[in-house]
Computed example of a mutant assay.
Amino acid sequence: MKQLKLTTELNVTPSEWKINHQSNIVTIGSCFADVLGSQLLDNKFPVLNNPFGTVFNPLAIAKLLDLSLDGKPPHAALYHQNTDGIWLHHDFHSSLWSASRVDLEEKLIEKQKQVNQFLRNADVLVITFGTAFAYRHRATNVLVGNCHKVPSDKFVKELLHLDQVIIGLEHLLFKLQSIKRDLRIILTVSPVRHTKDTLPLNQVSKSTLRLVCHRLSEKFKQVDYFPAYEIMVDELRDYRFYKPDLIHPNSVAEEHIFRTFGEAFIDKPALDFMKDWEGIQKMLNHHAQHGFTPSHLALLHTLHGRLSDLADQVDLSDELIEINRRIREFPVNS
């Protein structure tokens, strides 16, 4: 009898180049950029994870990177003080805020400097696009990254045109290429559905983003596409892979997408490390059920040995300090 297939598997072609634990990685974009960056950080890769906070539309992402690379300050007319007296900026996520405009400006400029410096030494930039819908600030007539719950009549919502997005991103890619010729760029479309746009328009938005990624990956040899969106909607075509909001992928889906990402872009020694590291993390999080027993002390010494064996590959100084602390605090007569 022919085996019944219950899912359509997506075959992702491995890239010709690979990420390792010496690769400096920047992630930027939607909340999926946060997820991927956190997964890489958890596996000890050097990552600057979504430094500007969540940014959904591609032109807002391009603007932030462009300003950072040029050393230009944030748009002066886009600062906003909310009803609680908190200062925000319409190009940045609400996690970047201050009690005064001056302090916020200093914070944003410092963040831009950090991104500038990291990008100049980066090996990989991962950009995740969330939506092709954007908001235009009426008073300045510029597209912004965040409305910060300001009344909707202060903005105009618009669907970005394909050519409009491609031109903006091409400008950014040429600039990145001039600064760091060997920088590899991975584009993704977020698997998170923007249902507030309605499902039909969400599909229009995602289709626009997908075509942008396709065109750019065709034109620029340093650009690759990772099909996070396709994995979610085709391979994981079932609501059991979503969180209760039926919008965001759950942890099972996130782990599967990350595993597929690793198989495509991470080299074999790093993948082998990740397998060992998964087991070590379980041991690190283990709590002795029966207190200070000889078997638990033996486990700590085993863990110390495994960490020491891997310490020449990545920085595990914090974990070794913690295990040494646990061993030192172990009662002598246990």
Rank of each mutant, 00 (worst) to 15 (best):
H148E: 00
I179K: 13
D234M: 13
V192L: 08
G279Q: 14
L108Q: 05
T260H: 14
G291E: 07
F174D: 14
R181L: 15
H286S: 00
D66C: 06
R237A: 02
D238P: 10
Q81W: 07
F174M: 11
I266D: 00
F92I: 12
L88W: 04
N82V: 04
M232G: 04
D197W: 03
F56W: 09
S98E: 09
Q203G: 08
R325V: 09
H89L: 08
L78D: 07
H21P: 05
A288S: 15
D276E: 15
E329S: 10
K154E: 10
L176G: 01
P46C: 04
I231N: 08
D34V: 08
F32M: 09
G262V: 14
F52K: 01
D66I: 01
M1Y: 12
K18D: 03
E319M: 02
Y135W: 13
D91S: 10
A132I: 01
H214S: 15
Y225V: 12
K219W: 08
L300R: 06
D267Q: 09
L4E: 14
H148P: 02
Y79W: 08
Q164S: 05
D66A: 03
C31W: 08
E235P: 11
F265E: 01
I179V: 15
F241W: 13
N50Q: 13
I179N: 14
Q164M: 10
R237H: 11
H90L: 13
P58N: 04
V142Q: 04
I179F: 10
N49I: 10
L4Y: 14
K5D: 14
F265H: 03
T198I: 06
R259L: 14
Y79R: 06
Y229V: 06
L307Y: 00
R120G: 02
A298M: 14
L88G: 01
F129P: 04
D234C: 12
K113M: 11
H75A: 13
F220D: 03
A33Y: 01
